[in-house]
Design a protein around this nucleic acid. Structure first.
Lengths: 333, 333
DNA sequence: TTGTACGCGTTATCAG
DNA sequence: CTGATAACGCGTACAA
């Protein structure tokens, strides 16, 4: 591939001049500029981003680390980031598949080796200290879907306690007194926080959510099916089912329908996330809107801003609150 | 960030030695190696991928260009690529949002500037010649979901004509004689090829698919809804609906159900792609399986292989054929 | 307005 | 086993 040197030779000018026309440098003769430009076209010249990054110490790139592209939630997250990087001509380096501590760590380090200026990280397996260390080392380091007080201004996160409370309160307001929950068995914050919110709501209403009414499984369709089957097998009685996310809700809904249980006539269901799926399934899922795309865009903007030198304001954080989206999967008793 | 030089100084050795321990170079004293290693840890040293790429002329990175991460189809595609890059320790540079010719071209060029070794490109707006030129310039350039004879061995694609034929034949075999089609209004190959296959099947069966039974819209849920509404508005009669993809099928299904039309009792529906959605919607969608993840993985492997010097075999190509997945959205008449 | 020369962080080729 | 040193492609003071 042609280099700046080749161009200089072909055009009979020096490297510096070529470099100047590439970067719209200030003082170059109009005709020289034209000549160089045409030669660049002819030779199909493309500036080498690596070399440029080396000398300028900036790479115009942003790293994204997520768990699984396959998951609509993460795909939407990535999409949110992409909307802002595209606008700012920033290249995305993507690292997915980080379900384990090892891989997550490695993903961040690889991105670091590539000297990305900014980073939007979704991490559930790394401990606070590790993340704080990264944040202190990398100005453009922003966490999404996680809150760590020590680096509050680097966190874009969702208030899951309120989310849990809202979904339970809504069910209760619709007259439901017997709730069940299918949750994620992953040992991360989210399920615990949502449960905390749910318990807040039930105890406020003088109700309880016994452990026997909670089933844990993988936070996907299969998990939802499994959890639902377990719930049915125990023969417990409930009129409203709260799900950890829409996928689990959909899985549970499918199992109920297979068992001849009418949704929402016999059992109401509330999901969480409001991914595409919620609108597709029948009945349409009442769920909590998790504005992940917007949040991801915010995170990307923030990361890029911090990376370019703007100091994060102390004490500031970026908390989002989910809102209930009423569709057709909840009946009023 | 610490450089190799800092390490060398701190360890009291030369750059060369440090470089050797980094790359597990052949001859380094055991104790020197240890000392250098601990110093690297202490200083949090990370090799600079840009510098390395510059001197080695290889970047261990692969570019992906797709239209829209937001779309489950593309998310799955990206996921397929990711499974192989991760295994081979290759970094992904992602470029999405390329719906227009301009952006698609720019995406490829940016990736080129970053000197990615390999490239998996999903392009529908760029013409054959442009793509061929890129393929000739970049050894690791592979197209996915597109077939260009001149660079057949760089193409991983789906036989859409057969796909169209299969879906129509299946409907016909189930006793349907009155078919309708909702398709994508984008002027790309796929819709035309599928229609060709469908027409093949109908004429073989002595049936016809008049233009009045075809509606075009955007290839997503909204488009499916719109197309279905248009179809209903014209008052045409049909017992089986073929859809361009699962999203359109789901949209159409929703509209029918809202109109009190039973699926599949009154109208059968067949989708295309077999994305997650097909399993979630009710009734579960009978559809054509598009093994995009597998194909994407293949494309990535190919791109990486070609990039590393293996010459592509002439006359070889990578054609995949969709298969029908029978679920619950088709009734036998 | 244009050219020279140095350095960015690495690897690799020589010598020692 | 180890150390100079020349690239890699580019940006930029400093000269001219």
């Amino acid at each position: 591939m042609a280099t700046i040197k080749d161009i200089a030779q072909a055009a009979g000018v020096s490297l510096a001049t070529v470099s100047r026309v590439i970067n719209d440098g200030p003082k170059v003769g109009a005709k020289t500029r034209e000549r160089v430009k045409t030669i660049m076209k002819e030779l199909g010249y493309r500036p080498n981003a690596n070399a440029r990054a080396l000398v300028t110490q900036r790479s115009a790139s942003l790293g994204v680390v997520i768990a699984e592209l396959h998951d609509p939630f993460f795909a939407t997250l990535a999409h949110g980031v992409e909307t802002v990087t595209r606008k700012q001509n920033v290249q995305i380096l993507l690292s997915a598949g980080s379900i384990a501590r090892e891989t997550e760590l490695k993903a961040i380090e690889t991105l670091l080796e590539h000297r990305v200026e900014a980073m939007v990280v979704h991490s559930k397996t790394l401990d606070d200290d590790t993340l704080i260390a990264f944040a202190n080392q990398i100005p453009g380091f922003v966490l999404i879907n996680r809150y760590i007080p020590a680096i509050a201004n680097r966190c874009v996160w969702l208030d899951n306690v309120t989310g849990g409370r809202l979904m339970a309160e809504y069910a209760i307001r619709q007259g439901h007194e017997h709730l069940a929950l299918i949750s994620s068995h992953y040992q991360i914050d989210d399920p615990a926080q949502r449960l905390e919110g749910i318990r807040l709501a039930t105890s406020n209403a003088g109700l309880t959510l016994p452990d026997s009414m909670i089933e844990y499984a993988t936070p996907d369709q299969e998990g939802g099916e499994l959890a639902m089957q377990n719930l049915l097998a125990t023969g417990t009685h409930f009129t409203a089912l709260l799900a950890y996310n829409d996928a689990m809700a959909a899985g549970a809904m499918a199992v109920m329908q297979d068992h001849g249980i009418d949704v929402p006539e016999q059992v109401s269901i509330i999901g969480y996330d409001d991914v595409l799926l919620a609108k597709y399934c029948r009945p349409k899922l009442t769920t909590l809107r998790y504005p992940i795309e917007m949040m991801a865009a915010k995170a990307a903007e923030l990361a890029l801003k911090y990376a370019s030198g703007t100091a994060p304001e102390e004490g500031l954080t970026f908390k989002y609150t989910p809102t209930i989206v009423k569709r057709d999967s909840v009946a009023r008793l």
